[in-house]
Design a protein around this nucleic acid. Structure first.
Lengths: 231, 231
DNA sequence: ACAAAAGTGTTGTTACTACACCCATGG
DNA sequence: CCATGGGTGTAGTAACAACACTTTTGT
């Protein structure tokens, strides 16, 4: 059915990939599938695939993810970078545009058997340049946690501040104070109290206030940290 | 010599483009060339071209720029985004990876006759999605001026603070105070005094101190504006 | 002496961190 | 009534903007 194209028409294969990140078990993890074939047989790789002729890059990665993870669960998706080193794929000239995807805490999308979550800071052997892609996606997330409302895509729909603090701690990789996190996000208007409360556990304790992100699309909440325009 | 490939082998053309920005006449400008052929005949477009089989994306855009502008003058080059909308090129399926390039104040690279500089905030009619690409490159630059030393790529090798202030003002599009700019950049260690002075003009005035950027590669000088790690 | 250009001193503000203290609940 | 977990109050600090003031030159 398919023949090899003559050499004079050689062009790179264009693929889209996604580093889908989620906080699980208190750790930031990435969704990977284990390759069954060479190259990189048995190594782990990012989900994605070849771009179709009539789709945008974002539509492509959404389509490929839909075959692995329930699309509705990806709360945020953004392009990170494009990798085009001619040696990045040893068997074929391939250009990959990588996306960062985020899944909220607590949802557990059904994934195929060869696909599982792995801690971003303790990856198994990865194929191609996917290890570097994962780390740059993680870095993009970490940066945006500081100056945008991107937490909405990692947190559940409603949450207590302790829960949100744990999400930030896992994603950033260092301790965050719930007290100060609350004040920062409230001042910026990124989160709002829902009015609800959460019952304490059986050990007792004051019931926690319930919060939600005020917006479920990416917004820059802390613009112009410095050199800001005169008013 | 060249035949059309059979439909079953159709793949997008991969091109690289660059929005090369420079402060000229006190205004941030971008290097564009005027198309002589359809599509978008007579419209202005970003320099760039098709990716070759054995080169990286960055090597590709450097090669294409070298045919238009003296390569050594590009003080900084970074990938911004990849554009893959199937309709972005009306005659061919084409994917473009866009770079931001910066040229220091004062150099005047020799460019072909069909290529000239245009104010970023007052563009002529542009082809494809190049207008959007230019604006996102400009926004990337504006953001990084606040939290990195990226000014090194817009400023001349040595400069007075008034000169640097003018560069920042042109790039950011709003007034910047030389007094405070100096303190911000000195505190961060981004600039250092060279020890030299500049003679005042014929109108008199105190001679200006001469400064230089301490590093000519991109560095994040103001990390973790907020939510910073505990020490 | 005076205008021009550059640099310094000083004050006020904002946004944050750290930490002590207070509140509400279950047992 | 006390342990537990959540929330508030408050002081200290760093980074910055605004602006008055001083310094150094040419005419």
């Amino acid at each position: 059915m398919s023949r090899k194209p003559p050499e004079e028409f050689t062009r790179p294969t264009q693929v889209t990939l996604a580093a889908v990140l989620q906080v699980r078990d208190g750790v930031l993890q990435v969704l990977l599938w284990q390759r069954a074939r060479d190259p990189f047989r048995n190594a782990w790789a990012l989900p994605g695939g070849v771009l179709a002729a009539d789709e945008t890059l974002e539509a492509s990665i959404r389509r490929h993810l839909a075959t692995k993870v329930d699309l509705a669960e990806v709360a945020h998706l953004e392009q990170v970078s494009t990798y085009g080193d001619p040696d990045r794929n040893p068997v074929e000239w391939e250009i990959a545009t990588a996306y960062l995807g985020l899944v909220p805490l607590g949802v557990d999308p059904s994934v195929p058997k060869d696909t599982t979550w792995h801690p971003v800071d303790d990856l198994p052997p990865t194929g191609f340049d996917h290890g570097a892609i994962i780390h740059s996606a993680r870095d993009r997330l970490r940066g945006k946690l500081s100056y945008t409302n991107i937490g909405f895509a990692l947190a559940p729909a409603t949450f207590t501040l302790t829960e949100l603090r744990d999400v930030y701690t896992a994603a950033l990789g260092y301790d965050v104070s719930a007290t100060n996190l609350k004040r920062v996000l409230l001042r910026r208007g990124a989160i709002v109290p829902t009015g609800g409360r959460r019952d304490p556990g059986r050990a007792g304790g004051r019931p926690a206030e319930e919060f939600a992100y005020s917006d479920n699309a990416l917004e820059v909440t802390d613009p112009f940290a410095t050199l800001r325009p005169p008013e």
